[in-house]
Design a protein around this nucleic acid. Structure first.
Lengths: 175, 175
DNA sequence: GAGAAAATATAGTGGTCGCTACAGAATCGT
DNA sequence: ACGATTCTGTAGCGACCACTATATTTTCTC
């Protein structure tokens, strides 16, 4: 998971994954079936843990504006490079990958994430939930990409604050 | 350039580039020196043409808010997938690439872009030019990534409008 | 038209990719 | 303790990678 997150799906080989896990190729394929199989497990583990920013922000309660603000600020804290890992595995782990299976796995997870966000926003703004959820997810993609390009926490937090204010205003405005 | 843009630096091979250009490997290396050499030329051609959104938006005149709004809206029009090509070559062409030379070339070009934007914004808001330029470039990264994930022009335009409004408000607000 | 020079294609360099056949070692049931 | 079964390590599969040495063709010069 760490290797996929740090360098992207295509750039890390099965041999390296095996040596990281302390196993050799045959055991690797017995355990995961394929490289994409391990990637799927890594994605699931990632989404089930502390990297599921939206779930964490939502758990603290509050209205849509508060949860979205916490989500963006949490991303700003979590995305900057740490130990060679930056950004979001789901958003950028399979970007530019030549493997359609890996791309499909990541896309499926992105779709699930934006759907959950949209449903949550729809509780307060059913008409514009789609556009507002898109706003947040596109902003997150920008933060993930910027973090992978070397942006630090200060820059991402500044962006997250502006985006939060924007979201709050768009939510308050009548469609 | 089209191939790099469509699939990313690593996912396209020299043989394919050669057959696209109608030349064989030796001629390819005689002309460009290396795969990264062609990538550099592609980046330059890309930035010199209609893809340099900021230059186009700036050419039409107006204040900082107007130019930024035009930049974002232009990105929303240009980024959605067309003939297999989506997003921005500079922002995403070398993402997750294992080749440090390609990454360095793209990063250099990104830095030049954000510097130009920052200097332009500084004409009206010298104090906050850095943060405001970061806001725009992170938003652009989000739009490019979203386009590569399949977002259509309507979704990107909606985002661009919200981001433009946000930028206008942040610019008007006193730091 | 003959000879030199440039540009081309053929073929192949070592290396890595995801993945697997096979053999030896460890484990288990009895 | 022994035979069967599961597992793991070694080695290698074909395919592709960026890249290049050699040979051939083409293009000039005269």
């Amino acid at each position: 998971m760490r290797l996929f997150h740090a360098r992207g799906y295509d750039a890390v080989g099965v041999a390296e994954l095996g040596s990281e896990l302390g196993i050799k190729p045959p055991s690797f394929y017995a355990a995961f079936g394929s490289k994409a199989g391990l990637f799927e497990r890594a994605l699931q583990r990632y989404a089930a843990g502390e990297a599921n920013i939206f779930a964490r922000a939502r758990a603290e309660g509050g209205g849509v504006a508060e949860v979205v603000e916490r989500t963006l600020l949490l991303a700003a804290r979590l995305y900057p490079e740490r130990n060679g890992v930056a950004g979001c595995l789901v958003l950028d782990g399979a970007r530019n990958s030549a493997d359609p299976e890996a791309c499909a796995l990541a896309e499926e997870m992105r779709k699930a994430g934006v759907a959950a966000l949209r449903d949550f926003i729809a509780e307060e703004a059913p008409e514009r939930a789609g556009a507002l959820a898109d706003f947040v997810t596109i902003a997150m993609r920008g933060m993930s990409a910027a973090a992978r390009d070397g942006a630090d926490e200060a820059a991402l937090t500044s962006f997250a604050q502006m985006a939060s204010r924007a979201f709050r205003r768009e939510l308050a405005a009548e469609g």
